[in-house]
Simulated assay, not measured.
Amino acid sequence: MFRRLGVSIYPDHSDFQEDVNYLEKCEKLGFERIFMSMLEVSEGKEVVFKKFHRIITEAKKRHFEVILDIAPAIFDQLDISYDDLSFFHELGADGLRLDLGFDGNKEALLSYNPFGLIIELNMSNDVAYLNNILTYEANKPFIYGCHNFYPQDGSALPLEFFNSCSNRFKKEGIRTAAFITSQSADYGPWDINDGLPTLEMHRYLPVDVQAKHLFATGLIDDVIIGNAYATDEELVALSQVNRYQVSFNISLVDSINEVEKRNVLDNQHVRRGDITSRMIRSTEVRKKYKETNTKHDHTQTFYRGDVVIGNELFGKYQNELQIVLEEHADERKNLVGKINPDELVLLDYIKPWSKFTFHDL
């Protein structure tokens, strides 16, 4: 399934022109979807319609998919029936995210709405919620899944639980989404804003590292910045993330030679299929580079995340590239760089035959 980037808009808290400016930047950088919260609406139906229709119209001009986050209270407040979703269709929305669920049968019926509105389900519960809905013969192509975000420090999901929740949706072929958090954005839907990630381990990481991790899990199709507004630098960094394979940011050592530099940066690396626990081996490059690789930075201990290349002492393994997983020393290897410490978690996702690349910091 193709993968996308998204941002969040909060019309009840934001300035319209600032929202438009934000969407213009995001469109140019290849962002494709918008999460828009309606959970905080407090005005009458006519005022709410005008406010949301205005910004959704601008979003649709820029070809964004717009999903509105709603809860049962919204229907009561705006005097809308679940049996008639025309209000949201007239707003111009593409779909509705149900912050709270029903009995399964209701969600299945909603997925057959005559407007073709997507029904997005809350993924952050490790229960058979989706299976129950599908049992009622839901209109599966119109079902998405999206995790929650968590404004309070310490309250977001642990990785193991996240994996379990996400697998329930992924194995059914449902499009999935999760949130990352800007380190500079000022607000979200509530008055507490310690960031808005889905995973607690992401709360204080750079946005691009968060996105790399979510994509690397293979469980998430759409990565959305939960808070607003991300900086221009964050948006650019996120737009440059490879969504389909891990690309490590690496700091190269000063003594790296030109052949080693080309080896690291100019190749599609592939982990050998018959793996070892000590290192990730990219072996095809040693066939490509036949030049003698003289010794440098080869007498120290190598640590997890170090990138090494075989030197002239290594015989047939000269110019083989390896990423260290377990601490060891071997004078037949030159240290050529170190993976960004924030990205060491990504090493867990380099499986047998996984493809990966490097980007020089």
Rank of each mutant, 00 (worst) to 15 (best):
N163F: 10
T176I: 06
S155T: 15
S166V: 01
G218A: 06
K212S: 11
Q183T: 03
I174N: 01
V209R: 00
L219Y: 04
R168A: 04
A185W: 09
A178S: 15
F169M: 09
L199Y: 09
L219N: 10
F169Q: 00
P197R: 00
E160Q: 12
S184Y: 14
K171N: 11
K170M: 10
N167G: 08
L214Y: 01
S155K: 13
I174K: 00
R175W: 10
P158W: 02
G195E: 07
K170N: 03
T217K: 13
K171L: 10
E160T: 10
S184D: 08
P189W: 08
Y187K: 14
H213N: 04
K212W: 01
F215S: 02
L159Q: 11
M201A: 15
N163D: 06
Q183E: 02
I220N: 00
A156N: 03
G218V: 06
P206K: 11
R168M: 07
F169W: 03
E200C: 13
R203A: 06
N193R: 06
A216W: 02
K170P: 00
L196K: 04
D194Y: 04
Y204A: 04
A216T: 03
G195S: 15
G218C: 06
P206A: 02
G195Q: 12
N163W: 08
S166L: 03
F162W: 13
L214P: 01
S155H: 10
D194E: 02
G188N: 11
S182L: 11
T181E: 14
Y187W: 07
D186H: 10
S155P: 12
S182D: 09
T198Y: 12
S155G: 09
H202K: 03
Y204P: 05
F161N: 06
E172D: 01
R203T: 02
V207Q: 02
D208V: 10
L196E: 05
E200A: 13
I220K: 00
A185K: 11
G173W: 00
V207W: 00
C165P: 11
T181Q: 12
S164P: 05
Q183F: 01
